[in-house]
Design a protein around this nucleic acid. Structure first.
Lengths: 132, 132
DNA sequence: TCCATATTTGTAATCCTTACAATTATGTAT
DNA sequence: ATACATAATTGTAAGGATTACAAATATGGA
């Protein structure tokens, strides 16, 4: 918890109880949860928490570079506390999202065909090893 | 127009006037239009067209493998008639989406870390050459 | 031409996300 | 410790993209 607090403070985000709990869950979970999932889990500890707070907090974390939104389905965003550039694998069967370490020369170089690259987003869709 | 008709027929999609026009526009445009954009353009030729028809048609095209949805912002989908695997560049300044030819060894191989790959989705965010 | 079926259309409903204002909590200066 | 200005939280309402649904229309084959 101290680690999470320090992370927030280093980004000038006031470490409220809600924010601490949300970021803690995000860093410990590897499931790339949706807002609804985070909201549901948070309710166990903080029954009065509002979904708006979850949205607000996640937006703050994303803006501060502490979390990343994952847009795959276009229906609902999912969130990742691993902000190092990496790719994802979306399993169409179980719905899980897995992290993948993928090298990208263009991203390392910072540009492609003269276009300046700020962010890299990549994912595969398919059937994961477990579901095969 | 004959080419578009044949494409639809080869996929067993009845070539109605609306579908022909939508697919024709999609193949000739390189702007990766949104549903609203397609709807607006179609209205010029077919003033009575419904937005639901645009959605229905696009869903049919995607299901038949004739078009691809591009999910980047998470707000609204955009569509691409180029169904060959390729990547995109999203310019944060002008909002344009550019096509990129990017090689991916994992996709060619059809799997990564034992997970079976069906689709490849990759895009960069940044500032395009024109806006720099 | 007629008929069964598919498509189109318009409206309403759904779902995710944001806007907004009131309440509550926080940090600081006194 | 107290008061105050500011920031965060909360609940509700609104926004916007997409889908559900049923009625009207068009299509293709007998």
């Amino acid at each position: 918890m101290e680690k999470v607090r320090k992370l927030l403070e280093s980004k000038n985000i006031r470490p409220t109880y809600q924010r601490l709990k949300i970021l803690k869950y995000l860093t410990e979970s590897k499931e790339h949860p949706t807002v609804d999932r985070i909201y549901g889990v948070m309710k166990k500890d903080i029954p009065t928490i509002s979904k708006t707070t979850v949205y607000n907090t996640l937006n703050s974390l994303v803006e501060a570079g502490v979390a990343l939104p994952i847009i795959i389905t276009g229906k609902e965003a999912r969130f990742d506390s691993n902000v190092m550039p990496h790719h994802h694998f979306y399993c169409e069967k179980c719905g899980k999202i897995l992290d993948l370490k993928v090298e990208c020369e263009h991203f390392k170089k910072g540009s492609i065909h003269g276009h300046s690259i700020k962010e890299l987003h990549g994912y595969y869709k398919g059937i994961c090893k477990n579901c095969l």
